[in-house]
């Protein structure tokens, strides 16, 4: 797969939350190329959570298609979609990314549990987890520490390691820096970009912070690609 292949393509997507007819999302066209880094700017309530859920295959569009690595998510059964997400997408949340009671190592290895293909790509998973930790500036001793004891900044870096392990083709990050202070933010983004470039991984980040834009290949406004409908309930 070369860097110009489309990793993610959304076409004529229409979505409404079941039972919540008041909110709808339409995406005429949106695509992310292989190895590309894209920043979507949008305030909360602009439909970004819904968009990410669509891309991750948690919910399925009513009409149109969501293709990840060439696969139409709607064509997969729910279980297969979950498996597909585990195989192809690394997810980083704003915060509370980790299972607090599980060790850092187990947290990083967690997606591999649901993705045999990704596990195979990771090779020696334990060693790969240790390597990622080192690359993310986390001390080796932290591997066996319950994740709940780490600082927020450390936890976010563990989340990056978890998203990267087994080299998924796409990383979806939902405001991963908003819980960090400015200094930590930059260091965090440096690490994230370096790791993504290293693995040729595409990065789709959603944020409301325009200042981050300079680092990305493309910066789009969420309202430019998606229209949301909101009717009075």
């Amino acid at each position: 797969m070369t860097g110009t292949d489309r990793i993610l393509v959304l076409e004529d997507v229409r979505f409404r939350w079941p039972g919540r007819a008041s909110f709808s999302l339409n995406v005429p066209r949106f695509a992310v190329n292989g190895g590309e880094t894209v920043l979507l700017l949008g305030e909360s309530g602009s439909g970004k959570s819904t968009l990410l859920s669509l891309i991750c295959g948690i919910v399925v569009a009513e009409a149109g298609s969501v293709r990840v690595c060439g696969t139409d998510l709607a064509s997969l059964a729910p279980g297969a979609r979950d498996r597909f997400r585990a195989e192809q997408i690394g997810v980083i949340f704003q915060q509370f990314n980790l299972l607090p009671y599980a060790t850092v190592r187990d947290n990083i290895l967690l997606p591999l549990r649901f993705a045999p293909g990704r596990r195979a790509r990771a090779g020696d998973a334990g060693a790969e987890a240790a390597r990622l930790c080192a690359a993310l500036g986390l001390a080796a001793e932290l591997l066996t520490v319950p994740a709940g004891r780490l600082s927020v900044g450390q936890q976010q870096r563990v989340a990056v390691g978890r998203a990267l392990i087994g080299r998924p083709l796409l990383i979806v990050a939902d405001e991963p820096t908003s819980a960090l202070d400015a200094g930590t933010q930059n260091a965090f983004l440096d690490l994230l970009f370096a790791r993504c470039r290293e693995g040729g991984t595409s990065l789709l980040m959603v944020s409301h912070d325009e200042r981050l834009g300079a680092r990305f290949d493309r910066v789009l406004d969420l309202s430019g690609i998606a229209t949301t409908g909101r009717m009075a309930a």
């Binding site: 991750c56 948690i58 729910p78 279980g79 979950d82 498996r83 597909f84 997400r85 585990a86 195989e87 997810v91 949340f93 509370f96 990314n97 980790l98 299972l99 967690l110 997606p111 549990r113 649901f114 993705a115 978890r162």
Partner: peptide, 16 residues
């Protein structure tokens, strides 16, 4: 619920 959401995001099925 947060814990369950993490599992889901990592690719766990609801049956898991």
């Amino acid at each position: 619920r947060r814990e369950m959401a993490i599992f889901r995001a990592m690719g766990a099925r609801p049956t898991t």
